[in-house]
Structure formats: structure tokens, C-alpha cells
Amino acid sequence: MKRITDPLSTLKRLDRRRLRDGALTALVPVAACSVALAGLTAWVGTGRAGSPAVIRVTEGKVLLPSDGVPETAAFFHIANEGGSADSLVRITARDVPGEITLSRHRMQQGNAAYRSTIDSVSVAAGDSLAMSPSGVDLTVPVPSDQWRSGDLVPFTLEFRRSGRVKVLAVVVRPDSASLT
């Protein structure tokens, strides 16, 4: 014998099923938003949310150029003590007769190295960059009046968000420089 069901109770069952399925479907994005909100709340609680990059440049060194070589290298230690990343995008020095380029050095097999010019280098929030001969450095044209060991060379480092930072670099002999 076939059971006769009430069409109204069938509709109620279907409505409850749709309601349950809809609630489960909505639960996933609600849970994801809750996790994201908790993370943002923790970030704000640390006091770093939205704080700008704070750049500090120290330990400036310029290698004493070899006779007859048209360029040398300069190195700085850059620390970002702020809450946002920043990028070094331009370097100038009034005593330098040409364009200073930002370079990255890479090693190849057999201890061969090559340098490539890069447009910028990023420094993450709370991180630092120690320029070195085996990583990022500055390629600096040598002025006609040769530098001497101990001379101070003024540089201006320009950052995308923080603006310009003026710093002095001391000229050092390549064999006596602690660059790393």
C-alpha cells in the first residue's frame, strides 16, 4: 500500500533541507572572514598596523679604487624598523661624476661571478639588508680627483616610501674592509 504524504509536510522538509544546506554553504566564508579578522586584530594589537617604513642607513663604505679603474663599489647596512616594506630605488652622490647603479652579484661555477644592474631592492618591515660584494651593492664611478683612504663620501639614498636618506660612507682599502 502506498503511503499518502501531506504535501505541506514535504514542503516543510524541503525548506528545512535548503535552510541547512544554505547555512553550511555560508559557514565557509564566514569562518574564513573570522580567521582573517582575528589575524588583523592581532596585527593591530602589536601596534604595527599601518605604520610607515622607518629606514636607518649605517656602516657606509666605499672601496678605494684601483689606479686606472673607472668604477668601484659602495656598501651600506639598511634597516627597516617600521611596519611597512620599502624599496631603495635611486642613489646619488654629489662628488661622483656619473650615475651610481644598484647591482646584484651572482656566483657561477668555477668561482666566476657576474654583476647585473637592478632597478630597486626591497627591505621588508622589521628586516635589514647588509650590502656585500657577493650580494647587492652600489657600482660607483670614480671621480678624477682620486679618493684617499679615510675620506668621507656623501650619498643620498632614495626610498620609494620613506624618501631621501643622506649618509656618509668612508673610503676603505679593499683588503682591510669588513664588508659582510
Rank of each mutant, 00 (worst) to 15 (best):
G68T: 00
R104F: 11
G82E: 03
I91M: 11
L168I: 00
A31E: 07
G135A: 07
Q109L: 14
G163D: 09
E99G: 12
T117F: 03
T41Q: 07
S34L: 12
A49E: 00
V54Q: 11
A79V: 11
V167Q: 11
R56K: 06
G47H: 01
L179Q: 14
V121G: 07
L8M: 07
G83M: 03
H77G: 03
A42N: 08
G83H: 04
T25C: 04
M107L: 15
P70E: 07
V142T: 03
G45A: 14
M107G: 08
L64G: 07
S134C: 06
G98S: 08
A23C: 09
T58I: 00
A169R: 03
F75P: 01
I55E: 04
T180C: 05
L11A: 14
R16I: 03
M1E: 13
L11N: 07
P141M: 06
G110Y: 11
D151W: 07
W147H: 01
S149R: 12
V140G: 03
D67M: 02
V57T: 01
E158F: 03
R104S: 11
I78V: 13
A42L: 15
I78Y: 05
A38W: 12
D151Q: 02
C33N: 10
F159Q: 07
E59M: 00
T117A: 12
G110L: 11
G82M: 03
S66F: 05
S128K: 05
R161N: 15
L27M: 13
S66M: 09
V54R: 14
L37I: 11
I91G: 09
K2Q: 09
F75N: 00
I118K: 15
D86G: 07
L40K: 08
V167K: 06
Q109D: 14
S103Y: 00
